[in-house]
């Protein structure tokens, strides 16, 4: 068992739903309520020190309940460790607190997750579309968005 997951479970016994280390990647599925606290703990705990937020993305597990997942990938420069934190969100209420206060660099990742999956990051300073244009309707990476459904900005309709 990895030290990261141990520390995490010790500190937040009620919030960690499950953990695994498949393929050598430490992973923890946590509840969304205290996500900012958990991330700040991972960053600040002297034994962990995850100072890089490498990646954030959403995943759409259409047909499962809860439907959406937010995935954080963290890296610790000093300990040379990685961890993956996952949070499940329900379709009717895909809302999670923003982590911009913990890592300013996570800002655009959250905007991308909103743009692509429609996941709302509560308290985000500027939650706007980032890759698509403002007039675009829907969230293209959701599994129920047809791959070639176009919304042309100009030119003949297809």
């Amino acid at each position: 068992m990895s030290i990261v997951l141990d520390r995490l479970r010790e500190r937040f016994p009620a919030d960690v739903v499950s953990t695994h280390s498949d393929f050598g990647d430490d992973t923890a599925l946590v509840r969304r309520e205290r996500i900012v606290e958990i991330l700040a703990f991972l960053r600040d705990d002297p034994a962990l020190l995850f100072d890089f937020a490498m990646d954030l993305t959403g995943v759409d597990y259409l047909g499962e309940e809860p439907r959406f997942e937010v995935v954080y990938h963290l890296y610790s420069l000093e300990k040379k460790r990685r961890v993956r934190i996952k949070v499940r969100l329900h379709e009717e209420d895909p809302v999670i607190d923003t982590a911009v206060a913990v890592w300013p660099g996570i800002n655009w990742y959250e905007r991308e997750a909103w743009d692509m999956y429609g996941i709302v990051f509560r308290g985000h300073p500027n939650l706007k579309r980032i890759l698509m244009y403002e007039a675009f309707e829907g969230h293209p990476l959701r599994k129920d968005y047809p791959k070639a459904k176009r919304q042309p900005t100009i030119g003949p309709e297809e």
């Binding site: 393929f23 990647d25 992973t27 490498m54 995943v59 990938h73 990685r82 993956r84």
Partner: peptide, 19 residues
Amino acid sequence: GEVYSATEAANGELGFYIV
């Protein structure tokens, strides 16, 4: 399964998260 694998590309860390 799911993996995250990172390599050092010319510009920095190039990571692939695959489900």
